[in-house]
Design a protein around this nucleic acid. Structure first.
Length: 467
RNA sequence: GUCCCGUUCGUCUAGGGGUCUAGGACACCGCCCUUUCACGGCGGCAACACGGGUUCAAAUCCCGUACGGGACGCCA
């Protein structure tokens, strides 16, 4: 039988990182089994629905590379089918009309809570005929006694006594189907074989199974994944910083780093930390799944991202960093600047943990307007003045402006007028060329900038000291 | 309150009765490399929640306690 998994986001306007992880696991399992990975938009709540919100989710999936095998289905579109199913159950006596008002139910719950009893609906209309002219909801008849056992792929065997389950609502008093009904019907109709979702749904599984059983349908396999918590152990929310997939993208993380991190959060294959999507598809199974919630750790994400930055193709990084240079530093990348970036990227990408950092580090290659920050400025003073002058003269006389020649020149200046301390030469030069006190290897950077530009920047630094 | 789930270094985890003086990764600390900051290399710190069982033997199995999380909607 073909494995079919599904990702059913509700269009809330952003894609929670926890949902992204759920999507990832559904994707991986489907691909691992050579099955299908489907998308269904849970838009039964029309208030919340918007095309933009759906778009945000699809963009998130695309960014992560989680391609799916259907045109995204709308749950709302299946409304009539859900209603029909509910009416069938009513017709065969497996469901019934309940005339309780919401106020009545609220009161019922409060009383039960006060008395220390379960807050479930007390089934007062289960075997009664009601006044047909009053509003009613349709509820399933759940078994009254016994125990339901589910064999969860992650959680193992979980049991709940039927007396703790109630007769949940299938159709609201306005005739619209509830989420519980819709999910069951849609999963069945889409031939979903494996329901993989957050373990906040574990309790729902029992309620949904009641519907499956009433319908006499085969139930899917279940895998309930542990949730992601914030760094402090509580529910991962806005106050922990970023929660939406789009926000992580904006923070300069690479999708492959994101996937790798999310995968390892709750799942492991021995000591393998770094794992490509291909490898993950090959290995993924529920065996490696952990049962407990994991805390989100930005530091580890960053280190993974640093790893993938080093591995990334230079042209790809350049394409990614150009919009950031514009957006963050108001810099346009000209053709010659792009050439510099290409030449310098090997030295740049090894030192950046995120694309944001990469953009910052790239600035001195892109713009010839150097502004000295305090740390750079510190090295431009009367002590370094003669050194810069000497350097300028010596570099100007070079015929081959190559890394090796530049290095030889710097060392020579260091030996003759800086007491052999190379740092005394390099730090002022670094400040002159980059405006600050840290940068990639300067011998190479100078070659990439070119002789004219290096001399111009040295002159600017000298002028700056003179002021 | 009721029901369900969980608990190995600070964090993510390996571990499925003896190979555990508990392994790896991130973070942290130190050293090396070095023109700076990084990178890289080497080394260090650091954990089986607690209490009972079962067993010749328990991080691993069972029970309880504590703590943490989740669910209890005519939301999804």
């Amino acid at each position: 039988m073909t494995v079919v998994t599904r990702f059913p986001p509700s269009p809330t306007g952003f894609m929670h990182i926890g949902n992204a992880r759920t999507a990832l696991f559904n994707f991986l399992y489907a691909r691992h089994k050579n099955g299908k990975f489907l998308i269904r938009i849970e838009d039964t709540d029309r208030e919340r629905h918007s095309d933009e919100a759906v778009q945000v989710i699809l963009e998130g999936l695309e960014w992560l590379g989680l391609d799916f095998d259907n045109t995204p289905e709308s749950q709302y579109a299946n409304k009539q089918r859900h209603i029909d199913v509910a009416n069938e159950l009513l017709a065969v006596g497996k469901a019934y009309k309940c005339y309780c008002t919401p106020e009545e139910l609220a009161e019922m719950r409060e009383t039960a809570k006060a008395e220390g009893r379960p807050t479930a609906y007390d089934r007062r209309w289960r075997d009664k005929e009601g006044p047909d002219d009053q509003p009613f909801v349709i509820r399933v008849k759940a078994p009254l006694e016994g125990t339901m056992t589910i064999h969860d792929e992650v959680q193992g065997e979980v049991k709940v006594d039927y007396e703790n389950l109630d007769d949940l609502i299938l159709l609201r008093s306005d005739g619209t189907p509830t989420y519980m009904l819709a999910v069951v019907v849609d999963d069945h109709d889409m031939n979903v074989t494996h329901v993989i979702r957050g373990d906040d749904h574990l309790n729902n599984t029992f309620r949904q199974n009641v519907i499956y059983d009433a319908l006499g349908w085969d139930k899917p396999s279940y895998a309930h994944l542990p949730l992601i918590h914030g760094p402090d152990g509580s529910k991962f929310s806005k106050r922990h910083g970023a929660v939406g997939v789009g926000e992580f993208k904006e923070m300069g993380y690479l999708p492959e780093a994101m996937n790798n991190y999310l995968l390892r959060l709750g799942w492991a294959h021995g000591d393998e930390e770094i794992m490509s999507m291909e490898r993950a598809i090959e290995l993924f199974d529920f065996d490696g799944m952990n049962k407990s919630a994991a805390r989100f750790d930005y530091a580890k994400l960053e280190s993974l991202n640093a790893h993938y930055m080093k591995e990334a193709d230079n042209d790809r990084l350049i394409d990614l960093v150009i919009p950031l240079l514009k957006q963050l530093h108001a810099l346009d990348v000209s053709g010659s600047a792009r050439t510099r970036l290409q030449a310098g990227m090997d030295g740049l990408k090894d030192r950046s943990k995120t694309l944001i950092e990469l953009a910052q580090e790239s600035r001195f290659y892109v713009s010839n307007e150097i502004t000295y920050d305090p740390k750079g400025d510190k090295h431009l003073n009367t002590d370094s003045f003669p050194i810069l002058n000497q350097l300028k003269g010596d570099l100007e006389s070079l015929n081959d402006f190559t890394t090796a020649q530049i290095e030889a020149t710097c060392r020579d200046v260091s030996d003759t007028i800086a007491g052999g301390k190379l740092g005394k030469v390099m730090m002022p030069l670094r400040a002159a060329l980059t405006g600050t006190d840290k940068s990639p290897s300067l011998f190479e950077a100078a070659e990439i900038l070119g002789q004219n530009e290096v001399l111009a920047r040295l002159q600017s630094a000298i002028d700056h000291i003179n002021k």
